[in-house]
Amino acid sequence: MSHVRIIARLDIKGPNLIKGIHLEGLRVVGDPHEHALRYYSEGADELLFIDIVASLYQRNNLSDIIKRTADRIYVPITVGGGIRSLDDVSKMMHSGADKVAINTAAIARPELIGEVARRYGSQCMVLGIEAKRTAPGKWEAYTDNGRERTGQDVVEWARRAVDMGAGEILLTSVDQEGTRKGFDIPLVQQVCDAVNVPVTASGGFGRAEDLAAVGATGVSGIAIADALHWKRMSLIDIKAAAAAAGLDVRPIAGSPA
């Protein structure tokens, strides 16, 4: 089984770290900077920051948060939400981001995928997909935090975006997000089978057994929010459970490999 990254996901609204269910019903968790530092110190392989209202208001407010965080964190940082142009990408990279996740703007103007990949490298261009199930084995891509339909089939869109230069896919199941009921395994499996770039699964982690199930799909990354924010499991617990399930995860410094 290939190496799997355990990624702490932080959804941001204004100055606050928040968490919802199905990307709705948001509750304030606290200061994103403090939580990011804690997840880094606990052993997160990467951090993912999403400005969840950026597309709605056509702006991304994360640059100050990222600047503060990047000064003290030495793992890759991905930033998403409201990134619509090469200028926006440049601003995030100068703030300390390593990668950008683009959803709404990539749907609106797919050429942006290739433009970002050519200027910054495909490894920087992460395609964000918010997927909702429409029928057994079928999913539609949504934008604006799961509010707006696109008419795009998720698997076909993932394949097309990779052909245009996307170097990674951040796949969020809106149906499972915040439910603690496990990942949408058929969704993750179909996308992993369709593309030859790393796929990060987000939405639904609830208990240790979920790690083995999603790991078996061939994902490269597992994004976790709810369990970390409400301290239901620590990253140390999660990584130990992942290793026990046979996943190849980076050991936490000071813990037995």
Rank of each mutant, 00 (worst) to 15 (best):
S95Q: 04
G14Q: 10
A117T: 05
G182D: 10
I73K: 03
I107E: 11
T78D: 03
Q152S: 10
K19Y: 04
I169L: 11
S122I: 01
A141C: 14
G182N: 09
D175L: 12
P198Q: 09
A70I: 03
G30T: 12
A244V: 00
L86N: 12
R149H: 14
N16Y: 05
A131K: 07
A216P: 04
G20P: 09
K19H: 13
K231G: 05
S173F: 06
R250F: 01
V75L: 06
L112H: 09
Y39E: 09
A257F: 06
E177R: 02
A131C: 12
I236E: 00
L86W: 06
A245W: 00
D153Y: 04
M93K: 14
V116Q: 02
A44I: 08
G43Q: 07
I222P: 01
E177L: 05
A208M: 00
Q189A: 13
I238A: 02
A201V: 03
V188W: 03
E130S: 09
D11V: 02
R5E: 15
G20F: 12
S41C: 03
S95Y: 02
T217A: 13
K19L: 13
V89N: 14
S63G: 01
I50E: 12
D31W: 05
D31N: 15
I185N: 06
V29H: 01
V162H: 11
D163G: 08
T150V: 11
D45V: 01
G182A: 10
V126F: 07
R72T: 04
R159V: 03
R118G: 05
R180S: 06
I21E: 08
T179L: 11
D248V: 08
H3T: 07
I12V: 15
L10H: 07
P32T: 10
V79Y: 10
V100W: 14
V100M: 11
S234E: 09
L235Q: 08
P251W: 04
I77A: 08
A225C: 11
A105R: 09
E130H: 07
D210L: 00
V79I: 12
A117I: 01
Q189F: 03
D193L: 05
V89Q: 15
M1R: 07
A213Y: 00
V29A: 12
Y57L: 03
D193V: 00
A241W: 06
G114W: 04
S122L: 01
G81M: 07
I102F: 03
K67Y: 12
R5K: 15
G178H: 04
Y74C: 11
R109S: 15
Q58G: 07
G121H: 08
L171K: 08
A257D: 13
T69S: 10
H22P: 00
E46V: 08
L23A: 02
I73C: 09
I21Y: 01
G14K: 09
R147I: 00
V100N: 13
A101S: 15
A223P: 11
N60G: 07
D87C: 02
L17H: 02
A244H: 07
R232L: 10
D11P: 11
K132W: 09
V116I: 14
K67V: 10
W230P: 00
E168R: 10
P110D: 12
I73F: 04
S122D: 14
K138W: 03
L112Y: 09
V174Y: 05
T69I: 15
A212S: 14
T179N: 11
D237H: 08
T200M: 14
V4C: 12
R133D: 07
R160D: 15
Q123Y: 13
M233F: 14
G146R: 02
E177F: 03
S255T: 15
